[in-house]
Simulated scan of single mutants.
Amino acid sequence: MKAESRKLQAIMEGAGFDGVKRVNPFDGFPPPFDFFGRSIEETHAMMSRLYVSDAYNSLSIEGYKVTPELIERLSSVDTPGR
């Protein structure tokens, strides 16, 4: 274990944590979805929710103030090749 890892573990344990739990940020993503067992409407609704979530994350990382109106405006823009 690297010195930085040991130091972080000591800080976490000193703060009352029993240990450092490893977290997989991709656990559960993409969400389980049976495309062949769902209607086109359900599939479209799931894809729309993922689009909004991805747009929010991407834009906020870039520093934009994200609003539902901004996401709606961007989703309605006609882009080349689309």
Rank of each mutant, 00 (worst) to 15 (best):
75 S>V: 02
42 E>C: 01
11 I>M: 05
35 F>W: 08
73 R>Y: 04
4 E>T: 04
76 S>T: 14
76 S>W: 02
74 L>V: 04
59 L>I: 02
82 R>K: 14
76 S>H: 07
18 D>I: 04
27 D>N: 10
62 E>C: 12
70 L>G: 08
59 L>T: 04
70 L>N: 11
7 K>L: 15
41 E>S: 12
10 A>G: 03
37 G>A: 15
81 G>K: 02
39 S>M: 10
31 P>E: 13
37 G>M: 05
53 S>Y: 14
68 P>S: 10
22 R>F: 08
56 Y>F: 12
81 G>L: 06
53 S>P: 00
17 F>M: 09
55 A>S: 12
39 S>A: 08
52 V>D: 06
65 K>I: 08
37 G>Q: 07
35 F>A: 05
59 L>N: 01
20 V>S: 03
72 E>Q: 14
77 V>K: 09
78 D>L: 14
50 L>G: 01
75 S>P: 01
48 S>R: 11
36 F>E: 14
69 E>T: 12
39 S>G: 15
10 A>I: 00
63 G>N: 03
23 V>F: 04
39 S>H: 10
15 A>T: 02
46 M>A: 07
9 Q>A: 13
22 R>E: 09
22 R>P: 00
76 S>A: 14
6 R>Q: 06
60 S>F: 04
20 V>Y: 06
70 L>I: 11
38 R>Y: 03
